[in-house]
Design a protein around this nucleic acid. Structure first.
Length: 343
DNA sequence: CCTAAAGGGACTATGCAAGA
DNA sequence: TCTTGCATAGTCCCTTTAGG
């Protein structure tokens, strides 16, 4: 709703930041308009009116505010997301000018472009964060996004490998990749963590691996979350594979997995696109993301009644709720008779 | 809801071996 | 020694999935 009025023979138009509904009209009539009249008379109105910035300006401020707390990958993603999907449509608009209907149409157009609901959520986040910064500053009262729902994302299906399938895959892999897969399947580590693993992180006496590092797109950083910094067990089945890998790269005293220049892998992409893809094909499997090694570890361990807390710790989850909510539904326990104690 | 990592297309760079 | 063809590695840039 907009209000127009004359003050000292000049015409003004101001937004009330409200949708036109019966209750809002009442609110405007009984409260907002008298307030404006009062402020006009007292001269307060023009003195306090905050200059409302355009999106392009304010989003930069918002990025600056949050940059130090975000990982560079997140910052970059949001930054590009803004310029690819938001800027063109909204960049030159004033913050109070954008209405829920605009957001709705924008979301629809993104869907038509083929973006997933999930992606649209992320793009909304950029927008929402900017608006909440603006609200804190008192620049606007309300975000146009709060009233607009996003289309629901469908759940993705995870297909864990069976134990026999794992063995088939590992026996068909060669050299480093064999050991890499064994580690993936029997530790549940993330691929970035495995690439970033150094021999100094592995303690063969205690049979432990300490995970403090991850590599992504050539960039060495910390693992995904604080809780991902963890010490995990080398289960005895995995042990010989790591020992074998030690024969391959152990004398270099650096990273556990090395490319042919004896440096750490730039990122998982190479392993995935060449070895993993090929291996699945050779073994007659449909393609599955390499992250399924992690899913597989979790499901197999839980399926065989391993302690949930232990599995959570291995995966680096904060608590077992996370682990269960993610993996419990893939577990099939057949022929188990329940409540036997009653008999 | 907010944050961070994996996935993947497209392109470039580099390596390597056979052939001219 | 140069050329060519093929395969793999690195990079950029964007999307999808995972985690808290």
């Amino acid at each position: 709703m907009w209000i127009t009025f004359y003050h000292q023979s000049k015409r003004y138009k101001r937004s009330l930041d409200l949708i036109d509904t019966r209750t809002n009209r009442k609110l405007a009539q009984q409260k907002l308009i008298p307030e404006i009249q009062y402020k006009l008379n007292s001269g307060e109105f023009f003195k306090n009116e905050i200059k409302i910035p355009i999106v392009d300006e304010f989003v930069q401020k918002s990025f600056k505010i949050h940059k130090s707390r975000r990982k560079p990958s997140t910052h970059l993603d949001y930054y590009n997301g803004y310029f690819n999907h938001i800027q063109e449509k909204f960049g030159k608009k004033y913050l109070n000018e954008i209405k829920p209907s605009d957001i709705e149409l924008w979301q629809n157009s993104l869907l038509e472009k083929g973006l997933s609901p999930r992606r649209i959520k992320t793009l909304r986040t950029i927008f929402t964060t900017m608006y909440s910064d603006a609200i804190k500053d008192g620049v606007v009262n309300v975000s146009p996004l709060t009233m607009v729902r996003v289309p629901k994302a469908q759940k993705v299906e995870i297909k864990p490998f069976s134990l026999d399938e794992i063995k088939l895959l590992i026996s068909n892999a060669e050299g480093q990749i064999k050991n890499f897969l064994a580690l993936a399947f029997f530790s549940g580590m993330r691929s970035g963590e495995m690439i970033g693993l150094r021999w100094s992180d592995i303690n063969f006496e205690k049979n432990e691996i300490s995970i403090t590092r991850a590599i992504k797109m050539g960039e060495i950083s910390t693992p995904k979350t604080e809780n991902s910094m963890r010490v995990i067990d080398i289960i005895s089945y995995l042990h010989p594979y790591l020992k074998n890998q030690f024969q391959v790269t152990g004398n270099k005293k650096s990273y556990v997995f090395l490319n042919d220049k004896d440096e750490h892998f730039y990122d998982i992409k190479r392993i995935r696109e060449t070895h993993w893809r090929k291996l699945l094909k050779n073994c007659g499997f449909e393609y599955r993301p390499i992250y399924h090694t992690r899913h597989t570890f979790a499901t197999i361990m839980i399926e065989h009644n391993e302690d949930i807390l232990w599995v959570s710790n291995m995966l680096g989850h904060t608590d077992s709720t996370m682990t269960l909510s993610k993996y419990a539904r893939y577990i099939k326990r057949e022929n188990v008779k329940r409540a036997q104690f009653l008999l």
